[in-house]
């Protein structure tokens, strides 16, 4: 029983982290058709911002958390300005390769300006305590992570439904040009999407840093790869799909870890990716793929 609860919480917290990052990818993709592989470097930048702020200013974890969120939002919006604006409206491959290019640039900048080795940033580790409820021992970090993710999703949904900018984002995912014809500035909608994406990355960064306690140039790549897969499973561009895909991956990973013998632990990733390939054969556009107009647009 305890084991089941622990594993469920494992699945939820893994899933929450994937869902947060996947949502960040999906919201940008739904609006401008860009698979933003540099999203992981935004997460890593959040980690480096901790190192910078704590060296220059303060070690207070609450200020650092705010710093991480701000850093990620700024980084995300800045990336759009500098790198992605030039390929706006270009085809998918162009955008994808640009994003990969940006990702490589940032990783190497971290390498050049920071260090190839992990740099310690342990201020958030206090979030991870072992809590005991009767006979059940769980990690507080996993609980925070799951709750924070649900709250973030709730706030995001409210934002998308109730505010003009949020509605414009939903409308833009269907017909961006018509949104502009309503007088709403394209730059504002896109900057908004990148800001939200950065905020979600910042949130994920806080939890990743609480678990790792150190920051390293390539740390963003693997999470974004998994989040990318989550988006694929859920249907690229679909926000509910990204959340669903994230949690499904979290569950799949835990199931694979539980079922596979200890010695095959390294195969978990292979198993998960095989499942992804199978999902794609079954439904080439993902499970919750958004309805797309297939006809010619005049």
């Amino acid at each position: 029983m305890d084991y089941a609860i622990q594993q469920t919480l494992n699945a939820l917290s893994f899933g929450a982290e994937y869902a947060l990052i996947a949502l960040g990818l999906a919201i940008v993709f739904s609006i401008m058709g860009l698979v933003n592989f540099a999203h992981g470097e935004v997460v890593a930048f959040g980690g480096y911002s901790m190192v910078i702020v704590s060296t220059l200013l303060t070690n207070s974890p609450w200020i650092l958390m705010a710093g991480v969120l701000i850093a990620c939002v700024v980084a995300s919006v800045a990336l759009e300005r500098v790198a992605f604006r030039t390929v706006r409206g270009a085809d998918l491959t162009t955008g994808l390769l640009t994003a990969f290019g940006v990702s490589i640039i940032l990783q190497n900048l971290f390498l050049l300006l920071g260090s190839p080795r992990p740099m310690a940033a342990t201020q958030f580790i206090f979030l991870d305590k072992t809590l005991t409820f009767g006979s059940v021992r769980v990690s507080s970090l996993q609980i925070y992570e799951t709750l924070a993710t649900f709250v973030a999703i709730g706030i995001l949904m409210t934002f998308l439904r109730k505010t003009t900018l949020g509605m414009a984002m939903r409308a833009a995912s269907l017909d961006f040009e018509m949104v502009r014809l309503c007088g709403i500035r394209a730059n504002r909608v896109i900057a908004g999407a990148f800001a939200i994406s950065g905020l979600l990355a910042g949130l994920a960064c806080i939890f990743i840093m609480a678990r790792r306690g150190s920051v390293q140039p390539h740390m963003g790549f693997d999470p974004v790869l998994v989040a990318f897969v989550a988006c694929v499973i859920g249907g690229f561009g679909s926000l509910p799909g990204a959340v669903l895909g994230g949690f499904l991956l979290g569950i799949a990973e835990v199931v694979v870890l539980v079922l596979l013998p200890q010695s095959a632990g390294g195969m978990a990733q292979a198993a998960v990716f095989t499942m992804v390939a199978l999902v794609l054969i079954w439904r080439p556009d993902g499970i919750l793929s958004p309805a797309r107009e297939k006809g010619d647009k005049i």
């Binding site: 790198a83 640009t98 490589i104 190497n108 900048l109 971290f110 050049l112």
Partner: peptide, 18 residues
């Protein structure tokens, strides 16, 4: 300067695409 070659590669990709 470790990472310079990677940086260059990224710049080439982004610049070509843009």
């Amino acid at each position: 300067m470790l990472g310079l070659s990677g940086l260059l590669l990224g710049v080439v990709i982004v610049a070509v695409m843009a």
